[in-house]
């Protein structure tokens, strides 16, 4: 039976053990956020994502905006310039037309702001009780206009790990409005398109080994996936990772670790250490990347462990969680 929702180790297992062997048995190697397809001498990036978030309206965004940013950002993680999106809507009978209009306007606004166009789509209505108001699927294509080989397998020991800004806002903004947990806060989602940041790195001529957005499972899961794919360890420094005060406070109260909390406008970049300073400078010149910083380095490690050094000097293992974090009792 399914119990694999959290984007953690269980979800990973489901994909690797149940889906890939049936769909693409010859496939070997790491999974990327987007597929890269050669077409007539050019390289196209192609990806898809489904959005089932509840509540659909949350501080700092809604499901429509998220459906654009999420897919666009997956294209960006392949180093592609996002071009076109498809839009699939699955609506439950009784879903308010007014909400549909608001979500659609939000999709249009996010697409315009990101420079992508919605070029094809599909709408289905399911019986009441067979859906959760609205589900959205978007697929996107983008163009890779450089010769860099950006891949989860590419990082090497010694490479710097650069984080594009503070973490934990999206997940905690959702948590604050979720039924049964609601608490007062000013935390808003960080949902945003990251293309301007990736473009800045490309234009600065940085060697980009790998990019990974920090969605479900957060920074910790992203680092673990790359460490596994690149057959190395990652050493992070806790005091280098920016977390806003209110996000930290909410995490402390609920007993959650911001390293595992979802983001929708943040990514990590793996670059050669010699180019780390230039990469940070390039990112900081963008509005979204103004707090970009080096948070650690890749290391030789046969166990592919991700570790975090705290200010007391202790290294602890940052493992992948098996599923969603749960609020603690006391």
């Amino acid at each position: 039976m399914l119990g694999h929702g959290g984007g953690g180790r269980l979800m990973n297992q489901l994909i690797r053990e149940r889906l890939i062997p049936r769909l693409s048995p010859e496939r070997d190697g790491p999974l990327h956020d987007a597929a890269v397809i050669p077409v007539n001498g050019q390289k196209i990036a192609f990806t898809t994502d489904s959005y089932v978030i509840n509540p659909i309206f949350f501080p700092g965004g809604d499901i429509g905006q998220l459906a654009v940013h999420g897919t666009v950002n997956d294209l960006c993680m392949a180093g592609a310039r996002p071009l076109h999106l498809s839009l699939g809507l699955i609506l439950e009978e009784g879903f308010p037309i007014r909400d549909l209009e608001v979500v659609t306007e939000s999709i249009a606004a996010a697409a315009a702001a990101t420079g992508v166009s919605v070029v094809t789509g599909d709408t289905k209505v399911v019986d009441k009780g067979k859906g959760d108001g609205i589900y959205i699927n978007t697929a996107g294509i983008g163009l890779i206009e450089h010769d860099q080989h950006i891949s989860p397998a590419a990082p090497r020991p010694g490479d710097a790990v650069i984080l594009s800004g503070d973490i934990g806002r999206h997940g905690m903004a959702i948590m604050a409005v979720r039924e049964g947990l609601s608490f007062e806060s000013d935390i808003t989602s960080d949902s945003a398109p990251v293309w301007a940041c990736v473009r800045a790195l490309l234009q600065a001529g940085i060697t980009i080994r790998c990019l990974r957005d920090l969605t479900r499972g957060g920074l910790a899961s992203a680092c673990n996936e790359i460490a596994e794919a690149a057959h190395m360890g990652i050493r992070l420094r806790e005091d280098a990772i920016p977390v806003r005060e209110d996000v930290r406070a909410a995490c402390e109260i609920l007993g959650m670790d911001p390293l595992y909390v979802a983001n929708e406008g943040r990514f990590i970049a793996f670059v050669p250490n010699a180019e780390a300073a230039s990469a940070v400078t390039a990112l900081r010149a963008t509005a979204l990347g103004s707090a970009a910083t080096v948070i650690g380095h890749c290391a030789d490690d046969p166990d592919h462990l991700v570790t975090l050094k705290n200010p007391l000097g202790h290294d602890r293992i940052i493992d992948m969680l098996s599923a969603d974090q749960l609020p603690r009792i006391c």
């Binding site: 039976m1 399914l2 119990g3 039924e179 049964g180 947990l181 749960l326 609020p327 603690r328």
Partner: peptide, 28 residues
């Protein structure tokens, strides 16, 4: 409380019961 959902009983946990259709909610 959220912590309780994954605790194994003799044969199941609350998550499994939820997946089978029970109305189980996490409250703070």
């Amino acid at each position: 409380f959220g912590d309780m959902l994954r605790v194994p009983g003799s044969r199941q946990d609350l998550f499994t019961v939820k997946a089978e259709g029970a109305d189980v909610r996490v409250l703070y």
